[in-house]
Write a protein that binds this DNA or RNA. Sequence first.
DNA 1: AAGTCGTGGGA
DNA 2: TTCCCAAGACT
Length: 346
Amino acid sequence: MRDGDETTAGAALLAWYDRSARVMPWRVGPEARATERPDPYHVWLSEVMLQQTTVAAVRDYFRRFTERWPTVTDLAAAEDADVMAEWAGLGYYARARNLLKCARVVAGARGGKFPEAAAELQKLPGIGPYTAAAVAAIAFDEPAVVVDGNVERVVARLWAVQTPMPIAKPELVEKAGRITPQARPGDHAQAMMDLGATICTPRNPVCALCPVNAFCAAKAQGIAAELPRKAPKAEKPTRFGLAYVAVNAAGGVLLERRPEKGLLGGMLGFPGTEWGADTPEPRPPLVADWVELPHEVRHTFTHFHLRLKVMLARAEGEGFTPREAFAPADLPTVMRKVWDAAQAGL
DNA sequence: AAGTCGTGGGA
DNA sequence: TTCCCAAGACT
């Protein structure tokens, strides 16, 4: 990309977007774009769900949330447990806790209306630099500089930035600002992200189909696939633990609500040991005839692998969740795997 | 300011 | 199987 090309490249990108924007439940279609503004609640909700999460994974969650809670005021009035259960399986559960906090601020102090400026949006729980800029641009037409992983990659390639991530971040933000137009900033941001998701992909970018390939320094140098550069990742350790599945005669299940902070914070789970470097000592939640299941559960989190031995027993006692109040879909995935494993032993 | 925090799909 | 990683935020 050369100085002066920004306007031309931006126009080519928008033209491509008008042709081939992907259809998503939270987007206003091209036919209505001239007359209809996106619902800020929908934009915010989708952007929070999309943090570090693929479009394919988000779609059904977005539909269920908006069907169940059509407005931010409805969401603000929801029970915590219902929101956490609806979020179960999507991951990064702090997002759900902050989502609810944010909804309650907006529905309360702000009378149900989101602030329109990126600087104000960023003060709300769960809204960082990216999400604030994205909501301001898409919902409120502010020419905010929207920088996510896609934009970083596209910009690094357009300017052939060799600086490794995350050191290159400020430089990439500055360059992203150069191609951000005053008009249609929301469509521009979504165009950059669509481009990164479908053409300017991490591996095997399809430069031949790229609407801005004529301006791309990395393509000219034949190094598009190598950018952005990044430091090698640390190896993931393996942790070990025990999980206890107790079922009573009525089909009730022994579950516990995990602490608000930390891994799987605020979610339901089976009682168990800590997860450490070695197989821990047994620590059953109640006295029963525990049987170890033949297959352990394996699950990988962001920064460690987990192997869980699953202990199963039929037992009676206090604190069981009644059969009709328990849905496996309300559990985070690792706990749903434990439940699935237990089914084989029942 | 590095570490923490999920998951499912693709290569 | 294993690795990579996706529309990041929080501490």
